[in-house]
Write a protein that binds this DNA or RNA. Structure first.
Lengths: 189, 189
DNA sequence: GTTGAAATAGACAGACCTGTCTGCTAGCGT
DNA sequence: ACGCTAGCAGACAGGTCTGTCTATTTCAAC
């Protein structure tokens, strides 16, 4: 692929990561080869292997960037009551679900392709999940929930399930399910 | 691989499907090649392509068999109150989660590797999900739930999420989460 | 200008992929 | 005894995969 106008002055590592994220997400990680990524990014193979020692390093960078974006979203939320914070975090699922090109959770999809729990990819996914669970746990505890670990566990499961449902079933149903889930799962509505 | 004693008189198609199911589930579908499957099943390549016109046909057969086993489990449940039936169906998730070698939901993992919603694999996954949702919907309606579609949607999401959580987080937590989910999601406990 | 770093194109190796094909063997019904 | 079917073994074609390598070009700093 020729470099297009919007690629000008964008460094190769950035172009590679953007292209890889798009292709990995849309088509699956194993299904997308290095040749394809460098062609669409307009980067030479040697340049790729200079910035990323192996394909797995690129995959990990992709996962970590997605993780970072999610954390940034939560960090940027205005301070509100814990319950509203939880609603805002889960509400992002509804937003993602109704996006065009939505193809499920980046982390769940990646984990499905990496069976080895000790692999770098799975470690990156684990880190994300630990952060997400912990964030919800803290909010549940702050809201006065007497069993914040269990409630957080249910919210994590709900999040995962709704992300999958938005991919495989009807995305339009997701926002109302989120609303209803919060009403039923969080105590003393 | 040599045929082992337990393979004697097991027809090739059966050995192929058993071997493929085991490998696909444990290592991922794209990650396992035909050569490996026929070697471990002790079947010649020509015999494989006689029984399954392509690898995708084998994948679909694998998905459909897993689907069939789940349906058989539900069909064999003794008739009880709807609420108990729901508990039994979700309870199977807890059983699976604590199995050695558990690696997540067969259908979710497969869907992650097949982006094209019109592919035969995705259609097989869709059929499974439609059956599962419908089964829960009927039970919710029979239990007197005033919004059975929403409750069923939440139960499907919970199921998916707990299956993923059992794979990626702590399987030991799953059974108690199932119990708690039923208590909070089903009305008039 | 010159030097050096960074990026380019693209060949190459070695492995693996799906799917086809040829030839051989073993067993079974008639 | 004969033919037929099913299965076995393995070569082969054509493609793709990751990762390495050579050789060239661009460009900025000095």
């Amino acid at each position: 692929m020729q470099k297009t106008a919007d690629m000008i002055d964008v460094p190769p590592a950035r172009r590679l990561l953007d292209t890889a994220s798009r292709l990995f997400y849309a088509e699956g990680i194993h299904a997308v080869g290095i040749d394809r990524i460098i062609a669409e990014a307009g980067v030479a193979k040697a340049t790729f292997y200079k910035h990323f020692p192996s394909k797995d390093d690129l995959v990990v960078a992709h996962i970590e960037e997605q993780d970072w974006q999610g954390r940034a979203y939560v960090a940027a939320l205005p301070a509100r009551q814990p319950r509203e914070m939880i609603a805002a975090i889960l509400g992002r699922i509804g937003d993602a679900a109704t996006d065009a090109g939505y193809r499920g959770c980046v982390f769940l999809n990646a984990a499905a392709e990496y069976p080895d729990p000790d692999s770098a990819v799975r470690r990156a996914v684990d880190a994300r999940r630990a952060w997400y669970r912990d964030s919800l746990h803290k909010l549940c505890a702050a809201s006065g929930d007497r069993s914040p670990a269990i409630t957080a566990g249910l919210l994590v499961a709900l999040s995962d399930g709704l992300l999958e449902g938005a991919y495989l079933d009807d995305p339009a149903r997701v926002p109302s399910l989120i609303e209803e889930a919060i009403a039923r799962l969080l105590p003393d509505a």
